[in-house]
């Protein structure tokens, strides 16, 4: 039985030895503290556009982290859920005139349904095979969107929907103002973070961590590993779908790129750079990667190569990522054994 676990370990996330602050204030208040930090973000960053992107990609990476950092499954296909969330939002508003909130709800449900389908196909393969199957399935979704250009706009992306106000009745707010838009997006992201924090602290959260640590032992304990993984996959897809929906609302267009494999790669890179298996790490990773992307693309046309190099350096020399390493430092300063 050992060889199976070894293939899994080859792709297992380099999470902290244990949550270094488990039981500490930083851990207990992780959701409110994260939201607080994100409230301050637009005032700390040079542009509001960057801040909104950190929120959206951060949520995308957080959703991904649920699967990779906490359940231990390395997926290369999460753009499928991000892109589906974005396209369904855009189509529901543009072609069917749905209320933006209803469109977003539909988008999240669609991403979840897609995750259920793709998960059912992929969840039985392990390690790098799982990564390859998810990549292949996401490519199918990409080509389907490319072909269905009557719906999706094909290569040009989806246009023709603009959301100027969001909310219900008198509570609707104008999101043409960038700062207002930021806080509207943050309302969704904050709610998602509160839910994810709750899920991680739940009995189910303990089961996915157990599966990450040892599938063999989890199964021997009496957990239905396949079913639990599938549920984690669907949850992850739901949150990535929400990130995609917010992305569509934010941009008022949906580029075909949102379904492409490098968008899948973004989730992996941001999660690892920030810190897999940490609550706030994906936001740190999103910020670092977006800033780096901006800076590098000014410097050199080969910025993707440079970004890839930075990523490899991270994997080699800072495997716990920026936030994961910071947490470990704080944990050590507190004099844990």
């Amino acid at each position: 039985m050992q060889p199976l676990d070894q293939t899994v370990l080859a792709t297992a996330p380099p999470v902290p030895r244990r949550s270094p602050l488990a039981g500490g204030a930083l851990s207990r208040w992780r959701a409110p503290l994260s939201i607080l930090a994100l409230l301050a973000l637009p005032f700390l960053l040079p542009s509001q556009a960057l801040a909104v992107n950190v929120l959206i990609y951060g949520l995308y990476a957080v959703g991904y982290n649920l699967l990779y950092g906490y359940t231990g499954l390395l997926s290369f296909g999460h753009a499928a859920f991000f892109g589906t969330g974005a396209y369904v939002t855009g189509i529901a508003i543009g072609a069917y005139g749905l209320h933006p909130l209803a469109a977003m709800g539909l988008a999240v449900a669609a991403a979840g349904a897609l995750a259920l389908a793709l998960g059912a196909v992929s969840i039985r393969s392990r390690g790098i095979y799982f990564a390859m199957v998810t990549l292949a399935l996401a490519q199918l979704v990409y080509y389907a969107a490319l072909q269905a250009s009557a719906w999706t706009g094909g290569e040009n992306g989806l246009r023709g929907f603009t959301v100027a106000r969001i909310g219900l009745g008198r509570l609707a707010v104008d999101i043409l103002n960038p700062l207002t838009k930021y806080f509207v997006v943050l309302a969704f992201v904050g709610a998602a973070l509160a839910m994810i924090s709750r899920i991680l602290a739940s009995p189910f959260g303990a089961v996915i961590e157990a599966i990450r640590e040892s599938e063999t032992r989890a199964r021997a304990c009496g957990f239905d590993v396949e079913r639990t993984k599938l549920l984690a996959f669907v949850l992850s897809g739901l949150f990535c779908g929400l990130a995609g929906a917010l992305f569509a609302i934010h941009l008022s267009i949906v580029p075909l790129d949102s379904l492409a494999y490098h968008t899948s790669g973004m989730a992996v890179v941001m999660t690892l750079v920030g810190g897999a298996g940490t609550f706030f790490g994906p936001f740190v990773g999103a910020l670092a990667v977006l800033v780096l992307e901006d800076a590098l693309s000014l410097w050199t046309p080969h910025w993707q190569l440079a970004l890839g190099t930075v990523f490899i350096l991270f994997v080699l020399f800072l495997p716990r990522g920026l936030w994961g390493t910071a947490l470990a430092r704080i944990g050590a300063m507190r004099g844990r054994p």
């Binding site: 676990d5 999470v15 902290p16 030895r17 244990r18 709750r198 899920i199 739940s202 009995p203 189910f204 959260g205 303990a206 089961v207 961590e209 157990a210 640590e213 040892s214 063999t216 032992r217 989890a218 021997a220 304990c221 009496g222 957990f223 239905d224 639990t228 549920l231 949850l235």
Partner: peptide, 27 residues
């Protein structure tokens, strides 16, 4: 074959959970 990065207590508590609660997302 244990859960290496969980504490000893978390290891056993999680094992106990197999009979008590497996799909509870909320408590």
């Amino acid at each position: 074959t244990v859960f290496p990065r969980l504490t000893a207590h978390e290891n056993v508590r999680t094992a106990l959970q197999a009979r008590a609660s497996r799909y509870d997302f909320w408590s």
